[in-house]
């Protein structure tokens, strides 16, 4: 759950990139770090082993100030996708305010995607997250590769799902901001009631989304 620090007038929002091993979670964070023009952008903290496997988590801090002066601080985490690190995944997922599920579009990875998604549901329940109300985006990554599920196939398979589906090629930076953008309005809606973004801090939904990514009105979609 988002954490309000009255003393420093700061609200910390935790967003988690979840998904099977090697699907591109860390790559998403790295590209966001490169592309986003959010007012405040921290350094990315990577905790990987030699062969690029996330061991604990990656962390990218982002933030901006609401008209009221409230510092809105995002902490974007990735979980380690490898099955063995389930305890770590649980700890990182704990208290998340939103999740991006990064799926691997390659046909060979369908089973892994499914298992990882089930694992997300399980772990959410274990750490006390109401999965039905959790802001969530499902991203199909690695669109640049051959032998992937077509967009139609993906949409067909996820037809019954209530979450936005996005397509990306994180390696080239395509679709990562769109994915982040698809998550932000859900996060705003989920937290607005409790923290009074509009009422107390004069922060509209559109401004929240725009400022989070650092788009000015003229930029349009990145």
């Amino acid at each position: 759950m988002a954490l309000y620090d009255e003393e420093n007038n700061k609200l910390s929002i935790k967003l988690v990139y979840y998904g099977p091993a090697q699907s591109g979670k860390t790559t998403n964070l790295m590209r966001l770090h490169d592309i986003l023009r959010t007012d405040l952008k921290g350094e990315i903290m990577l905790m990987e082993t030699a062969n690029d496997r996330t061991l604990f988590f990656d962390l990218l801090p982002l933030g901006f100030k609401a008209p009221s002066g409230l510092l809105i601080k995002f902490k974007l985490y990735t979980v380690p996708g490898q099955v063995v690190h389930d305890s770590t995944r649980k700890a990182v997922l704990s208290r998340a305010d939103g999740v991006v599920f990064v799926a691997d579009s390659q046909r060979t990875q369908s089973v892994n995607n499914g298992e990882s998604f089930a694992n997300l549901e399980d772990n959410a329940a274990r750490v006390g997250i109401d999965f039905d109300r959790l802001p969530l985006v499902v991203q199909f990554n690695k669109r640049d590769l051959a032998n992937i599920l077509s967009e139609d196939e993906v949409m067909e398979r996820w037809r019954a799902a209530p979450w936005p589906i996005t397509f990306s090629s994180a390696l080239e930076g395509q679709g990562v901001v769109e994915t982040f953008n698809a998550l932000l309005p859900q996060v705003y809606d989920r937290l607005d009631g409790e923290f009074g973004f509009q009422q107390t801090h004069g922060l509209s939904r559109d401004d929240f989304v725009r400022q989070s990514t650092g788009q000015t009105a003229v930029d349009g979609i990145a």
């Binding site: 903290m45 905790m47 604990f56 988590f57 962390l59 305890s87 770590t88 649980k90 700890a91 990182v92």
Partner: peptide
């Protein structure tokens, strides 16, 4: 600090 705290946390949870 974060890595060691996370480690303690998962140890405790396990």
């Amino acid at each position: 600090l974060m890595a060691s705290d996370l480690h303690m946390q998962t140890q405790q949870a396990d």
